[in-house]
Each structure stands twice: as structure tokens, then as C-alpha cells.
Nucleic acid binder design. Sequence first.
DNA 1: TTGTACGCGTTATCAT
DNA 2: ATGATAACGCGTACAA
Lengths: 355, 355
Amino acid sequence: MVTIHDVAKRAGVSIATVSNVINNSNKVAKGTAERVKKAIYELNYIPNNVAKGLKMNSTRTIGILAEDISAFSSPDIIDGICEQCERSDYQINLANLRVNNKVNQNSEDMYRDLAEDKEFRKGIQDGQNTLLSARISALIYIGVHPRDVSGLLPQIYIPMVYTYCYAKNPASSKAQNINYDDFQGAKLAVEYLIKRGHSKIAIIGGVINSYSTHRRMMGYQTALMEHSLPLRPEYITTGNWMFESGYEQMNKLIQLSDPPTAVFVMNDLMSYGAIAACKEHNINVPNDISIHGYDNQESAPFVTPPLTTIALPLHRMGVMAAKSAIDMVEHRNMDQTTEASVLIPCHHVIRSSVR
Amino acid sequence: MVTIHDVAKRAGVSIATVSNVINNSNKVAKGTAERVKKAIYELNYIPNNVAKGLKMNSTRTIGILAEDISAFSSPDIIDGICEQCERSDYQINLANLRVNNKVNQNSEDMYRDLAEDKEFRKGIQDGQNTLLSARISALIYIGVHPRDVSGLLPQIYIPMVYTYCYAKNPASSKAQNINYDDFQGAKLAVEYLIKRGHSKIAIIGGVINSYSTHRRMMGYQTALMEHSLPLRPEYITTGNWMFESGYEQMNKLIQLSDPPTAVFVMNDLMSYGAIAACKEHNINVPNDISIHGYDNQESAPFVTPPLTTIALPLHRMGVMAAKSAIDMVEHRNMDQTTEASVLIPCHHVIRSSVR
DNA sequence: TTGTACGCGTTATCAT
DNA sequence: ATGATAACGCGTACAA
């Protein structure tokens, strides 16, 4: 490997001069700088960041600890992180926990079970340690489900950002949570239904102890309230985020004596189930009943009818996560205005499942 | 940060001894080793891999240069790479080129255009250099489309693996291509259609100069040939991988005087278009006509009818890619049996779009 | 403006 | 079995 010494020799200068043209090119005479740059180019010199990292005690590297990189939400978040890191000249070190292979899908409370799983906790420890031994400057933890992950990670002394999850008691004294706004997204959805003339609006929620379910439910209620619409208990149902539960709950709603004309379903998967239930009863979506999803999964444009839904600001979450991580590393977070948690608004994707 | 010196002091030994218990614990007396381990635990010592990397001239780090981490194929490949790296005690350094934002979707030959795009070539250079300055031990390049990417990357002196793309003239003298088997996958699909009793089997291909289109077409032909079925030119159509072209080509096939009873469509997106065309003509899928896709996109189970398709071995490609990268790093690739290109078989996902 | 010398945290060699 | 010490490639006082 060609080093700074080789460049110095070829340019006929000392290594200090080479270092100076690389790092603060103003400190060195123009002619000398040219010679050095020429030598760098000719030798195809590539600075050794591991030596630099050792010397500077800073690697300018963000560690990503992803609960599951195959989760639908992870790639776009990581994409955002990459983008910001490129802009700020940071590198990325990646570790993956493969949560979705480990979680018990049949469990009532799969994420709590998971949090108590010895093997998973060891995996998370190992992942964190591997990253830490690479001397990352900050750590971004990407969850697979918005929930409190306090206590999952051992305490560390570098800045931390949680995204697609949050920590009430973070693992670092410098920490931030970056998430999308469940409340705003749900409100957006229901307000749209109201705007389209619906007043009998039911809801199919996710699992009842989920943060998202709570927040989205509040968005639903608030939208109704602000438009002086009644909150009808028989219109409130919950499932478990899966296709089947959307199907089941929709069947219940259909059989009501005064059925809704629109249903806000808390995720796309359950929406598909709801649509399937309608089809079975020869109820046309959206003509007889409107279905509104949440998540904007990759499949949403391709189902029949194409699903009107709420898109998550995943890319922006990644950008923001990297940005706050880097800000904390570079001590720019010291103004009191910085909130420990930021919520990024969702936006609407209108297709054809709402009339 | 606590260093090996702190541990040594606390354990009352020299740093050499601490290093020995970490790396070759057999060289040191049992009692001493215990004391050292205790000190490590008490001080929460985490080895500094950047110092180690400098000293060893090896970081045990795989660089991933992803053309687009948001492409449907990338996350599972990366997941596989992560898994193998964890097993082999390697770290991962990630860079993303965001190709899909840069490519001109309307171009006849978008990837060739891209390859000639100055800005993209600069991006790829920068990405490679960033990775190289982190002194990665090997580089894995993940494409977004199976094609020859020779000449895109500058020549380098570390092992390279190409996956979801290939290089006839790789950028390293130690290189390998890891891909799925287009030919085998297509043959699998068409043989299934034949087994289900179809003999009038049409095909909707991708863009005509695409490697995948060629290979899948050959799989189609071979399956027909091996079952003594005629190759009917009017059954051979091609599109451009997008929804609309599936729709258009299907419309043509429907209007044939002797229309097919089954269509092998070369990707899922065009399959959705084909299904849409059938619906418009009140042709029931699969009862009147069968549709077979390729890719097994996340959406495939949710369209109507759920799509029978070919699943790509993405995770295994990632595992294999990392494995060969690491093998090359550790000089285990020296047997002549190692092929420059390996193809991993696809497998079948049977749902309801084929009768 | 440019050069010399030191130290960052390791591992490995060579003594002891 | 254990310890002292020289590198690894770089950035930066400080000297010139």
C-alpha cells in the first residue's frame, strides 16, 4: 500500500507537507501543493483512515444496529442515513440482528418476549460490542416496530439515536429518538375520509398494547371530535396487524346493523384482509365501502383496488437520524431547543380504495 | 477509553500478556489469564479494532458497495452478507450509490446510459475510495439488475465479489460473480406450466438486450423443447419490465386467433399488468388463463389472484458472496475448481395464478 | 513555509 | 510464562 511517505518522497517534500495539503491546503505554498497533488494522483494514494482514526481518536463512522434489515422499513431509513453520511463525510458500519427470524409471531406480546430472550440479548450485546470495537463515533439503532426499547442495549458513552423505536431511558446520556408521527398520520387519514363525505367511519386497530395503535387511535378520535362526529364504540375494533385479523374484524363490521361507509385500517396488511372480506360479501371497495390503509407498503399500488394509505417518511427519518447523530458527535446539540424526541409527519398517498 | 494498558495495570501484568490472553489464551498461565479476564470485565474493556487493524494491516472488514439499497433485492442480499460476516467475525462497511434515483427510466437502455454518466462514475469512484480508505479487506458490489458491469469500477488490489450483476472483466485479479440462475428459474416455471397440462404457453419477456431476458428465454425454449412442444413465434412477446408493458403485451396475446392458455411473464410487475389486462376482458385468472411471474416480490401474495412465481435466492447469494470474499481474503480460493461465476438455483413459489 | 519527532493502541519479536 | 519494545500510518506540536 502506498503511504504518505511515498507521496512525500515523490513530491520531494516532507510528510507534514503532504498531510497539510490533504487536510488544510491553505497552509502550503501553491506550487508545492500542486506537486504533492500530482504525486498523490500518480501514485494513486488513498489515505489510510484506520491510521487516521487511531491518531485522531475519531473514526467519523456511524454504527447502524438494525433489528432487521429485511423489514420493509429498514432499507429506506438506511438509505437516508447513507445520504447524510456521504454529505457529512462519515462512514457507515452495519450490524444486523435479524429479529424477525427470532420473534415468535404467535405470541401475544412478541416484542416483550423478545426483550427477555437470553439469546437475543446476547446478540444485541455482541452487535454493539463489534461496532464499539470499531470505535464508531455514534450509534443508530433501527427498530422494526415503534416501541420503547429502553434497557435492551447496554449503556454506552457515545451518542445514540433510536429510530423506528424509542427509548424513554436511552443507553447513552446523549440520545435522541427519531420517529414518524402516528397521531398526525392517522388524523390525516380520517380527515380525508371525512372530507370525502364519510361520517360513519370505523377503525381496525393493531395490537392493543402497541404504541402505534394508541397514537393512531388518538388521531382517529381527534379527527372525529374536531368535526363533531360521534365516537361509536361498535365501530372500534382491533386486530394484530396481520392479514387474517383485518379479514375477521371487517367481517364483524359488515354485520353491524348500521355498518360504516368507511374504515380506517391501521396497516396495509390488515387492509388487504379487510378488502378480502368485502369481496367475499360482494361488497365493492370503494363504491360500497371505503378502505384506508397505513404504511404504504410496496404492494399497496398493486392490490385491487390500489390502496389509499399513509406513507411513512422513512428516508427523512434516516437523514434526520444521521444528522442528529453527527450533531451530537460534533457537539452541536447543545442548544436547549433540541427535543429528545422528534416526530416527522407522514404524508398521504391517494389511490383508489376510498370513494 | 480504557486501553490494554489499563487492563494490564489492573491485572498487574504487562500489556503483552493481556494481548496474549485475548488472542492466544493458551500461551499464558491459567491463574494469570483469570486475573486478566477479571480486569477486562471489571473495566469493561473493548479492544480497539482500529489500532489492531493498523498493526495487523488487516481490518477484517467487508465493504459493500450497493447500487441501491432500496432496490427490492438488496436488503436480503445484505442480510446474507451480515450473517456470514458475523459467523466469520468480519465487520461491514456500507456505501450506497442510489442508482434508482439517477437512472433514466424512459431510456431505451438505461443502464448503458448510466454507465456513461459522468456524475455516476464519479459517485462510484468516491464510494470505492471511501471504502478503500477504510482499508476494507474485500469489496462486494451489489447491482440492481443482472448485467455486465465491467469497467464501472476502477481497478483495485483487494478481492471483489459481484452479485446481482457480473463482470466479465472484473476490477480485481481476485474476483467472483455470484448470481441466481435465470435459466433454471425460467425452466422451472415453464416446466410447471407444462406439468399442469398447458401446451399453449406464451411468454412476456423483459427488455430485449437484457441478460436476464436472454437467459430466461432460453429456459423457456429448453423446457418446451424437452417436452416436444412447438416454439410458436406469435407467443413470444417482450416488454420493458414495467406494469404497462405487461398489460400491453397481454392484450396482444389475448387477441390472437389461437390464444395461449398460460403465460410465463418474466417478472412480477409485468404479471400484474397482464392480470389487469385479463380482468378488463373478463378473462378469469387462473381459470381461463394462467399467469406465472418471476421475482417473488413482497407484493406477490397480495395481488388477486395471489401470484405463482419464482423466488430469487437473495439471502443465499449474500451468504455466498461474503463467503467467497472472505475465502479470497484468506487465500482459500486457490484450488482450480473455483469457478469465476457461480449460479444459485431459484425456487418455486406456488400460489393461485396458475391452474 | 517546511521538516522532525512523538504518540495513538495494538501485535509480535525477542529477551528474560 | 512473562515483559520490554519496535513497528503499523497518520496528524501535529514545535523547531527551523
